Amino acid sequence: MAATDRRTATLALAHALSAAERGLPVIPLSPTKLPALPSPHRNAPGPPVPCRGECGLPGHGVHDATADPAAVRALFALAPWATGYGVACGRPPHRLIGVDLDTSPAVLQRLAAERGFTIPDTFTVLTPSGGRHLWLTGPPDVVVPNSAGRLAPGIDIRGAGGYLVGPGSVTARGAYRPAPGTAALAPAPCPPALLRLLTPPAPPRTPRPTRTPRGGRALVHFVLAARQGQRNARLFWAACRAYENGIGDALADTLTDAAVRTGLTAREARATIASAARLTAPRAAGGRRAR
């Protein structure tokens, strides 16, 4: 191994140990940003073995991640070619959530303005490609999945089962380093409004074997066609029309199911429908008195 390679590997281990001292589970990474240790099952005959480290051998990617200094040293000793380290997300005690911005930060800022949350000051890592990773923390009772472009184009999320390339890592494209002014910051708690966007919607309930009231089918389709940013407004409009036509209560559950399928939570959908019922109630009562 060349002297430069040895120095890079030594620095990678040092940075990984520093992260482990702060309770962050780490694994060694190769210059391609992939886990450095190959799977112990790679040459096994037959289909791939669904093992996440239960066999007791290293080489299971993020499932090898540990904050124990001795175990970290052992992993790096098995991978002397490692030039960086990954930090496992979703693991206690920090339960990291990584917001991977491959696009301008303005995209996240616009989303924050639309959704009513503030992007907190938090530890941030600059990537060799010009992107940045925002490090946030999540609550213990919420599992944030990995996603690519689900939040917005150019924004990927690193959650449970994923990892972030740690600062100080060197890859084939360059080095990862803390963003100026953030090195002394701890990962900030994820804003609740953003956390709701990162968690998958509840699975739709099994449809009841009831008939959709006449005129209700078109309103349900109107809600199902909602795009991001339109969901609540479309649901409110459809619920108002339903109550004005006397089918609001009969259609409420179906509209709730449709809204959940578009990405709203059931609680948000029910609150919007209740608002529509309150708004239209005086008008409906007045109409009945006029007749």
Rank of each mutant, 00 (worst) to 15 (best):
W237F: 11
F76N: 00
R231I: 03
P204L: 12
A284P: 01
A281L: 11
V62E: 04
V143R: 14
T256K: 08
R291W: 01
A14Y: 11
A148P: 04
D100S: 11
R217M: 11
F117C: 08
A238L: 05
I155D: 00
R52G: 15
D156L: 00
T256H: 09
R205I: 13
G229K: 08
A285H: 15
A259H: 03
R73A: 02
L255I: 03
G215W: 07
R234K: 09
G246M: 06
I27M: 12
S147N: 04
W135S: 05
L194A: 07
V72I: 05
S30P: 15
P209R: 15
P38T: 05
G98H: 09
I157F: 03
Y163L: 07
A233Y: 11
P25S: 07
P187Y: 05
G23H: 13
L255D: 00
A188N: 03
G162Y: 05
A202D: 11
I273C: 05
R205N: 12
P178M: 04
G86Y: 05
H15D: 12
R6V: 14
A106N: 15
Q230Y: 10
A276Q: 01
A175T: 13
L197V: 04
A277M: 12
A242V: 02
P128L: 04
P207M: 08
C51P: 01
R110E: 13
V72L: 03
A152Q: 00
I273Y: 02
N245P: 08
L224K: 10
H60P: 04
C89F: 06
A258T: 08
Y243G: 00
A112L: 08
S169D: 01
I97G: 05
I247D: 05
G130L: 02
Q228Y: 12
P128D: 06
A250I: 07
W237Q: 13
L101Q: 05
T256G: 15
G131P: 03
L34P: 11
T280E: 09
E54C: 10
